[in-house]
């Protein structure tokens, strides 16, 4: 019996491993392809080889010599960080209220935030364009930060309220009995325990802001606030007959790096079971 069970589970392991490999290859090939393109010289760009025959760093040197790209990178980092910070702080407070309190209009609030998340963003681009132009927000940092916060808040609230619900309510009661004001109870007991949720949310919101193309292309007009995804689409070759594939690939690789760094940095803080030992049961 044991032998049969053993071969059975080995067979299953092999099947799963094969499936996993297929998925990983399917997901990574385009990324590797971009990486490969970014190291190719213009002459070998279209030779169809996966591994470049002539390696070059020319593309990377070129994009960092392009002021539009460097400026766009700064815009991207600044706008995404600010939007993430504000969305996470507001989302934390809103999610805490939703998870803990019973207030009139709670269901409406949750419903409306869900509605915002579901609303097709493309339908809002024209009205937003008009509004921002008349308010003087068009082509500024706040002009992008505000819509980013709007559309990432529902996500933040949803993720965070799930985390808050996991924290035993008795801890808060205990903090109150120990002499804490509601503010102290939140800062010193609840917030540290909700940290994994906060970091998860921060990662998700940051990725959303970083990757956005629709708002970035519609609500900016110059390099004053244009973010990298939008700036990429304005890349041109040295002459109009030259293909900017190499530089676009290099830029795409470069803008992936901050996301990886951001995720790796915060992922270490996402540890499961932070509340274990709080309550028995």
């Amino acid at each position: 019996m044991a032998v049969i069970a053993g071969t059975d589970s080995t067979g299953r392991k092999i099947r799963w491993t094969l499936l996993d490999i297929v998925v990983v290859v399917y997901a990574l090939v385009p990324v590797l392809w971009i990486l490969s393109l970014s190291f190719k010289t213009p002459e070998t760009l279209n030779d169809g080889n996966f591994i470049p025959r002539a390696w070059t760093l020319e593309n990377y040197r070129l994009i960092f010599q392009t002021p539009e790209f460097v400026r766009a990178l700064a815009n991207s980092i600044g706008i995404a960080l600010i939007a993430t910070a504000i969305a996470v702080v507001l989302g934390t407070m809103a999610a805490y209220a939703i998870a803990r309190l019973d207030f009139p209009g709670k269901r409406v609030l949750v419903g409306v935030s869900l509605l915002i998340a579901m609303f097709p963003q493309v339908a809002l681009v024209s009205p937003l364009f008009e509004i921002e132009r008349s308010l003087g927000l068009f082509n500024t940092w706040p002009g992008l930060i505000l819509p980013y916060i709007t559309f990432s808040l529902p996500l933040a609230i949803y993720t965070l309220s799930a985390f808050f619900r996991e924290i035993p309510w008795e801890l808060e009661k205990a903090a109150k009995m120990d002499g804490a004001t509601p503010g102290q109870a939140f800062r010193r007991v609840i917030a540290p325990l909700a940290a994994p949720g906060v970091f998860t949310t921060a990662i998700l919101v940051f990725i959303f802001c970083w990757n956005d193309f629709l708002f970035a292309i519609s609500l900016t007009s110059t390099e004053a606030s244009r973010t990298v995804p939008a700036a990429l689409s304005f890349f041109t070759g040295a002459s109009q007959f030259e293909d900017p594939t190499g530089t676009i690939s290099a830029a795409a690789v470069v803008i992936t790096i901050p996301i990886i760094v951001f995720v790796l940095f915060f992922q270490r803080r996402i540890v499961a079971g932070l509340t274990s030992g709080a309550v028995k049961g």
Partner: peptide, 20 residues
């Protein structure tokens, strides 16, 4: 009075220790 102003301590059934 709020709990903190009553100067009483409480032991909970679940202990409610601060896990961090």
């Amino acid at each position: 009075q709020a709990p903190k102003d009553r100067d009483i301590a409480m032991v909970f059934q679940s202990y409610a220790l601060y896990p961090h």
